[in-house]
């Protein structure tokens, strides 16, 4: 009996290790492939110049900018709503049918395929509003796409704060709202920030939800034009904006330039690097912030 258990133990350990190694292997192979394919494209010119229609040598400047701008706009809209809803779900929502219904809706929303959200965005934010393909429509579609995640992140982070913190604050006669803003949120901040950065990575790499909302073209941006309504201004939220991920898809499927493949490889490498940076950055920042809040000096 003893020996049998030992053999079982060994086998299980071996199998689980093998699976882990396999996963890591696949991950590194994928990363290595993408990076080596795109490596030679990673120069300043490629990152800043606009793409060309027919001849070789175009870059991804506007697309790269669009990806970041769209990310910022999306987070500006989604974060306040997500935080508010998360706080409500964690601290105020009574445990009843209505709350369970909201929770279910959030689950459903978060499991919708992003292409469906893109089509919903096309219908509501592009057609019904009459805005056409625009950054704003794209940002709203991405908000819908991201909101469930942000709500869950906030709610979980708040629930993970030890209940004794809340108890201590309320017992000092501090109001509930003040307890949330001054005790619970600071303690939950590392979790919220880490989660938000991870969500940002998702937004950054999203393509399907943007095809029919932010559009598949980008005007040639004039980077010293900062008026909000000029069609070539980078900051104009009502212009179409093809992002990096959408660009990769487009170049790969209908690119006409002789170096289309190269451009797609380079863009893919950049995308992977950005998403990796988001993930590693989130980990590092979350750990750092947690240390700072729980043990470092703070004022």
């Amino acid at each position: 009996m003893r020996i049998k258990a030992k053999i079982m133990d060994r086998t299980a350990t071996f199998l689980l290790t093998a699976i882990a190694v396999l996963i890591i292997g696949v991950l590194f192979a994928l990363l290595g492939f993408l990076l080596t394919q795109g490596w030679h494209k990673l120069n300043f010119d490629f990152l800043t110049s606009p793409p060309s229609i027919a001849e070789a040598g175009g870059g991804i400047g506007p697309q790269l900018f669009n990806s970041f701008y769209l990310l910022v706009l999306t987070m500006l809209i989604a974060l306040p709503i997500g935080l508010g809803a998360g706080i409500y779900m964690a601290e105020y929502a009574p445990d009843n049918r209505f709350t369970r219904f909201i929770r279910l809706s959030i689950e459903v929303l978060s499991s919708l395929p992003s292409i469906v959200i893109g089509l919903f965005g096309l219908l509501v934010f592009v057609t019904m509003t009459g805005w056409g393909y625009s950054i704003l429509s794209g940002a709203l579609a991405l908000t819908v796409f991201n909101l469930p995640l942000l709500v869950r992140i906030t709610e979980d982070a708040l629930r993970n704060v030890p209940p004794s913190q809340k108890e201590a604050s309320l017992a000092l006669g501090i109001s509930k709202w003040r307890t949330i803003t001054s005790v619970l949120l600071p303690a939950a901040l590392p979790g919220i920030i880490t989660g938000t950065i991870l969500a940002s990575g998702r937004v950054f790499g999203e393509a399907a939800a943007l095809l029919f909302t932010a559009g598949m073209t980008s005007p040639d941006l004039v980077f010293h034009d900062f008026s909000l309504n000029s069609p070539t201004s980078p900051l104009n939220p009502m212009r179409p904006a093809e992002t990096l991920a959408v660009h990769i898809w487009k170049v790969n499927s209908e690119g006409l330039t002789p170096d289309a493949r190269d451009v797609a490889d380079g863009a893919a490498a950049i995308l992977v690097i950005a998403v990796l940076a988001f993930n590693l950055g989130a980990r590092w920042f979350g750990t750092w912030l947690y240390r700072k809040i729980t043990s470092g000096t703070q004022r």
């Binding site: 913190q165 604050s169 017992a171 303690a187 000096t297 703070q298």
Partner: peptide, 13 residues
Amino acid sequence: GMVFQRANPFFKS
């Protein structure tokens, strides 16, 4: 005022 069985200082200075 109330003090609890387990010390529960805030995550603050």
